[in-house]
Nucleic acid binder design. Structure first.
Lengths: 338, 338
DNA sequence: CTGTTAGCGCGTTCAT
DNA sequence: ATGAACGCGCTAACAG
């Protein structure tokens, strides 16, 4: 590919002059600019951003490391992040860890090597090693969606506990006392926070620990199907199911349909995460909706502030917790109190 | 961040020795290796891949430029591409053009600047300018999903025409003669190819041009809703709707539900693109399923062959057309021939 | 307004 | 088995 030197030669100037024309820095005589521009066009010159980044000590790239772009929740977050990044003139790289700490480590290493200017991370596990490394390397990092066991980074997330609490209360108010909660891995704070909210609501309603029905699995369709099967075999069968993420909710609905159990007539179902309008035909599920897009935007802006030095590095880490919102639809039945 | 020189200094060796240890090239005495490794660990040294790429003249990065990661079809393609890329030791960058030629141009420019080793492109428009530029810059490029008006690049796509033909025949065999086709932009070959397949089937059934009912819009929910509304106002109303992509199909189902038109009792519906199992509760729609994941894998492998020089550059451009498959479900009703 | 020099961090080439 | 010099492509700092 053409280099700046070849352009300079053709235009009869020094490379630095070409550089100045391209980057619109410094003063250039109009005539010179035109000579350079025509040389650039003639050769189809495209500046090498590797070299530029090497000199400038910044790459203009951010990275979003998440667990699964296949999940509409994450694609929405990603769109928010991308929009915010590109509004600030940054490019965004997406990486999927599939909840694997090994993949996470491998991607982060690659991102460090690429000298991305900042990282948005949805931590695959409670493991803090990667985050410590980012700190050590002084790579700005914002944690997304999940809490850390220790306060080692800024964090933007939604209020899982409050959402789960509200959803559980809604069920309790409708008379449900046998509520099964199907959640993700105990390693993931959104999974456990939703358990906390559920638990809190049960306690307040005067139900003690032995009334809790909690299944831990993973935030996937397969795990949801498996847990749903187990719920259906319980005697007495719970009168309501609380699915702690969108894939589990869809799995529950699928399993119930296969088993010929009607919603909400035979059993009530509520879920966490709404689906985008483009992906549902007949929205039936009462859910807690998280501001996914906004979370992506906010986290990105927080990251950008860190790298433009608008925040004082000596400040304590910030944590932004976004409120969630109940969207009531028609998957909850009023039941007699048992 | 630490540089190779600081590591070298701490280890008491020359930078090049550190380089050799890191890249496992050349001979190194065990003792030296250990000194270097401990220095690397102590400083948390992470090699700068910008510099490496600059020297090696390759970046180990591929890019997939597509129209919309929000669409499950594309996320599936992306997963295929990512898996294939990472199996070969490459990283994959994702870019969304939203069908905008301007965004496409801007992203491609950035990718050229970043010196990605190769590009997978879903062209936003029939415009060939960007592809010519890639040729001029000698950046290996494979076109995905859509045909080019001129043969200027290798291409991997699915057989839209055959799929549309089969789907239309299925409707014709069930007795439908008033079939509305709701498709994307006339600028997009998958949209027009599906019209061709539809048209061909009608012709074969002895129906002439004035029996064609074709709406051109975009492959989005909004456009689908708008077109569906128009179909519902037609008199006589078509007995079947053929939605030429997944979002249009979902829009049609939504619109029909709102209008209280039952599927398939009142009207039959077929679609292009299946949804992943994780996103549907009760798969109802008879569709043409495209091998999205496989398309991503194949295109990536074709690209990789080009850059490892396994293909003769003098060869003509390849075009791989993947077969599609009808998945019959329950959205088509047998109707009396009008 | 334009050019020269030097160096970003690394690895190839050629010595030793 | 290890190192010195040079250059990848670009631009900051300093001259002129």
């Amino acid at each position: 590919m053409t280099t700046i030197r070849e352009v300079a030669k053709l235009a009869g100037v020094a490379p630095i002059t070409v550089s100045r024309v391209i980057n619109h820095t410094g003063y250039i005589r109009d005539e010179t600019r035109q000579k350079v521009e025509s040389a650039v066009n003639q050769l189809g010159y495209v500046p090498n951003s590797l070299s530029q980044s090497l000199r400038w000590k910044q790459t203009g790239m951010l990275a979003l490391v998440l667990t699964d772009v296949t999940n509409p929740f994450w694609t929405t977050v990603a769109r928010g992040a991308e929009d915010a990044a590109s509004a600030a003139g940054y490019h965004l790289i997406l990486c999927n860890t599939d909840e694997s700490p090994e993949k996470q480590e491998s991607y982060l290493k690659a991102l460090f090597q690429k000298r991305v200017d900042g990282i948005l991370l949805v931590p695959a596990r409670a493991d803090l090693k990667d985050i410590r490394q980012a700190r050590k390397l002084r790579v700005p990092l914002v944690v997304l969606d999940r809490r850390l066991t220790e306060s080692l980074a800024d964090c933007v997330r939604c209020d899982s506990e409050a959402g789960a609490y509200q959803l559980t209360r809604l069920l309790l108010e409708r008379g449900h006392r046998n509520i099964a909660l199907l959640t993700g891995s105990p390693q993931v704070t959104t999974a456990t926070d939703r358990v906390s909210g559920y638990r809190k609501a049960l306690r307040e309603a005067g139900l003690n620990t032995n009334r809790e029905i909690v299944f831990y699995g993973a935030f996937t369709l397969e795990s949801g199907l498996e847990m749903a099967r187990q719920v259906l075999e319980m005697k007495p069968r719970p009168t309501a199911i609380f699915a702690a993420n969108n894939f589990i909710a869809l799995a529950v609905l699928q399993a119930l349909r296969v088993a010929n159990v009607r919603v909400p007539d035979d059993i009530s179902v509520v879920g966490f995460d709404d689906l985008p309008a483009s992906l549902q035909v007949d929205p039936v599920l009462t859910v807690v909706a998280q501001p996914a897009y906004q979370m992506g935007v906010l986290a990105t802006n927080m990251l950008l502030k860190k790298l433009t030095g608008e925040t004082d590095p000596s400040d304590a880490y910030q944590e932004v917790v976004l409120p969630v919102e109940i969207v009531e639809r028609k998957s909850v039945q009023v039941t007699r109190i048992a």
